[in-house]
């Protein structure tokens, strides 16, 4: 008769965290940058159909790294939550904070539940306000921790190199073209020497307070990305 080995809770959690972290670091990075008119999400994503960046609500955007089926599931859940809340109360009552909370609770529960494998995802949830001081960006990790992002953020892939470049070169109040250039150059820092990421394999979504429509999210077309990079 075999005796089950005793595994300490610390070890279980560490194993689960290692598992999730490994999955997340396999892909390419996603960068979020605050610019003068809002927030820009930039992902390296050769696929035109499987998006990493998406719209959640009027002022709320989403970006993710990790396993596609898992973060797509979370994105759809977020859209449903936001639409239901906006329909039940008012469009102004849908906030990134509430959404980030719901994601944190869900990811945390899945992470610590023995029956489920942890989600191998990390998320950015951004909300654009009427002025830059009130813009909000949250970063949600696989274990349900949530953190505020100030100015810029990176997740997935080779975080250290990308983040080091952004820390060195980011300034507040960039215009859109400069913010996109900064983010794209930063994404290319994950190899030595740095790569140039072609516009066709970039996915760029913006939340812009300059848009007159209530829906502030816009996906930039390839031509618009090229124009921003060429500027």
């Amino acid at each position: 008769m075999t005796q089950p080995f005793y595994v300490s809770p610390e070890q279980i959690m560490k194993d689960r965290a290692d598992f999730a972290r490994k999955g997340i670091s396999r892909g390419r990075s996603v960068v979020v940058v605050q610019y003068a008119d809002g927030i820009v999400f930039v992902a390296e994503n050769p696929s035109q159909a499987l998006h990493k960046v998406g719209e959640i609500y009027d002022r709320i955007g989403f970006a993710a790294v990790g396993r596609y089926n898992e973060f797509e599931n979370l994105r759809i859940a977020g859209v449903r939550l936001a639409d239901l809340r906006g329909y039940s109360y008012d469009r102004r009552d849908v906030t990134a904070r509430a959404l980030a909370n719901a994601y944190a609770q869900t990811l945390g529960t899945i992470f610590s539940s023995a029956g489920e494998k942890p989600y191998e995802v990390e998320l950015f949830v951004g909300e654009v306000a009427d002025d830059p001081a009130h813009d909000q960006i949250y970063r949600l990790t696989y274990d349900g921790s949530a953190a505020d992002v100030d100015g810029f953020g990176v997740m997935g892939g080779q975080i250290e190199q990308v983040e080091a470049y952004l820390t060195e070169h980011y300034t507040a109040g960039l215009d859109l073209a400069a913010a996109v250039q900064l983010a794209v150059t930063a994404l290319g820092q994950d190899s030595d020497p740095a790569r140039t990421v072609p516009a066709a394999s970039l996915e760029v979504g913006i939340l812009s307070r300059a848009r007159s429509q209530p829906r502030k999210f816009k996906r930039l077309l390839d031509a618009e990305v090229e124009a921003a990079l060429g500027a």
Binding site: L74, I76, A77, R80, L81, L84, A102, Q105
Partner: peptide, 23 residues
């Protein structure tokens, strides 16, 4: 505080269908 039941299920792209099930 968590995402409500049903929000994480795959399925219809219709909000009305979701509303009929969830609320």
């Amino acid at each position: 505080g968590q995402l409500p039941d049903g929000t994480r299920l795959t399925g219809s792209s219709s909000f009305a269908d979701y509303l009929a099930a969830a609320a």
